[in-house]
């Protein structure tokens, strides 16, 4: 979720206010929370509905800037869902999985800014081809190899090295076929 205020940084301060059983929510990044005097949840002056409204109005009157390269053609559209970069800039959301391909150039720097990385190293669905799994396994074994060497477990290291060689062969064979 992006910050309600700046639509630029991820929202890390989430505030729910309940007065007389009426709930209101606001989501801010650390910078905006600080700027509004909201950091550390020690709100002074306390958070008010007026602040919320002001935030909303500001949002509509000022074009929020996303830190992405805006040198795109306005006609750039996702071929699956019809979403444009302009739409993304307005809503902070993509339209479908294909959008990530279509707007890759602009998304990469944003992802790096949000997450410090744009490369997934977590779970892979099983249906994703075997090579992706082999590459992932290779990465894990290489890490284990470094650990084994560092702790002078040379027998284990040799074992791991053989496994990695075999994996590399399998990966190469898979990529050729």
């Amino acid at each position: 979720m992006l910050c309600d205020e700046c639509k630029e940084r991820p929202a890390t301060v989430h505030v729910t206010q309940i007065i007389n059983d009426q709930k209101s929510e606001v989501h801010l990044c650390e910078v905006c929370a600080k700027a509004k005097g909201h950091l550390g949840f020690a709100f002074k002056p306390s958070f008010s509905v007026q602040d919320l409204l002001a935030g909303l109005i500001q949002q509509f009157s000022e074009e929020p800037e996303l830190p992405i390269d805006m040198s795109f053609r306005v006609s750039d559209k996702c071929e699956v869902c019809g979403m444009t970069l302009e739409d993304f800039r307005r809503t902070g959301r993509l339209g479908c999985g294909r959008c990530y391909d279509e707007f890759r150039e602009q998304l990469e720097p944003l992802l790096r800014r949000l997450h410090g990385s744009s490369k997934h190293i977590g779970k892979l669905p099983r249906r994703v081809g075997g090579i992706a799994h082999l590459k992932r396994l290779e990465g894990q074994l290489k890490k284990e190899l470094q650990k084994a060497i560092a702790s002078e477990k040379y027998e284990k290291a040799a074992e791991l090295r053989d496994k990695i060689h075999q994996l590399e062969k399998d990966i190469k064979r898979g990529e050729v076929s």
Binding site: L2, L94, C96, Y100, L107, H115, K119, L124, V128
Partner: peptide, 21 residues
């Protein structure tokens, strides 16, 4: 189910703040 997934970015989500895992 066939999930929206890319090898590079991982699971593809509506908001880029959730992408990856």
């Amino acid at each position: 189910l066939n999930y929206a997934f890319s090898e590079d970015i991982g699971y593809l989500t509506a908001c880029p703040t959730n992408a990856g895992t």
